[in-house]
Design a protein around this nucleic acid. Sequence first.
DNA 1: GTATCATTGAAACACTTGTTTGAATCAGGT
DNA 2: ACCTGATTCAAACAAGTGTTTCAATGATAC
Lengths: 214, 214
Amino acid sequence: MFQLGVSTRDRILDTAERLFAEQGFHVATLRQITQEAGVNLAAVNYHFGSKQALMRAIFKRRLDALNAARMKQLDIALQTDPPELEEVLDAFVQPALAFTRGGDAEGQRFMQLLLRAFADRDTDLHQAMRQEYAHVMRRFADAISHALPDADPERLRQQLDFIVGALTLTMAESALKDTRIIAGELVRFAAAGLRAPVTEETARAVRFPLEARS
Amino acid sequence: MFQLGVSTRDRILDTAERLFAEQGFHVATLRQITQEAGVNLAAVNYHFGSKQALMRAIFKRRLDALNAARMKQLDIALQTDPPELEEVLDAFVQPALAFTRGGDAEGQRFMQLLLRAFADRDTDLHQAMRQEYAHVMRRFADAISHALPDADPERLRQQLDFIVGALTLTMAESALKDTRIIAGELVRFAAAGLRAPVTEETARAVRFPLEARS
DNA sequence: GTATCATTGAAACACTTGTTTGAATCAGGT
DNA sequence: ACCTGATTCAAACAAGTGTTTCAATGATAC
């Protein structure tokens, strides 16, 4: 029950990740974390320095893994030139689910954590996440531009944020068993959105967004 | 500076909304709120009962207004039968920006608050928000189904969540001046995504989502 | 003017928080 | 065996939290 054989440091990491995702950073207390992990209260400050530093360690561990998995799958997609749009999007979406393959809810837990980080603007965690993300996002934006050479790269980059929002919120929200199907749907949905040209109607909507058109 | 002439209750409501959005529910303290609002500390518990109840009051005020605005604009779109898909999506997206028209950042602040509520699963606030939303979401899902009679209603409902995620995250994240343009882009993006049929390629992606396709 | 109610004010309350301390325990090397 | 450094432990610390209390003040009606 107390994950015998695993180091104190890892027990804290796993338990804190779960409780931070479930309850949020400021609601989950060190006493609750250490008690459920079966370690002493002071162990957190000994191994990590502070509660904040613990959070950063948790975040870095998963985000590095997620980004590496995305990069790796993107490289495969980029072996064809120009790359297939769906394969590029797959490389972005699917690794977010890869963690769930083990059977437990780790992947979804991290998406919940990611969603909290997005919500926490003006925190160093938010800044750190955006910076960690910047690399990957730029590479994916470039790949999408190559797949859709006729589209404006700046607009494509903007629309990548739509995909991030849709992915993060639905993955954090949905039941575990549905995530795989939803990911496939999202790729199809996003690919069509990215391919859609700017029509006269939608251009007018951009210019006069609040006009009631009866 | 202290919004002279406005009632104590409203001063608390406005200040707390701002601080909750900026810092989060558990980080913003009643002492900070009451001090910045220029009211006594005990005023919160007198007028609202508790910090939680204050949060609910804040949320209800804006969400009711947002939902009402969406419903009203949806009714206009539904005057044509079948409704135009872009008009239905406009009715969903545009009211989220309507608050920003006054010049201040109220609209974006509320989207940040909404994002926090999404991240806070397993809280009564999250439950309350989902319930308040359920009505509106069902009506919009029905309207979209009417606009796209050939598509599976259940799948359309699923994809409405994509739009919610994209809208909430980008609106909370983006600079204020960009929100109007982004909203127009989102309508175009989402309309194309909803209209896209399920191809053999994407169907395969749904069946074998983690397969590396080189 | 006075009684009645709602509202404000300063202070205290009970409790929890993250962090620190210093002794006890453990492991590995010589 | 003995030393050394890393790790664990129980206890305390200082600070901050939401909430409550009760007297002071304000407004309103009779």
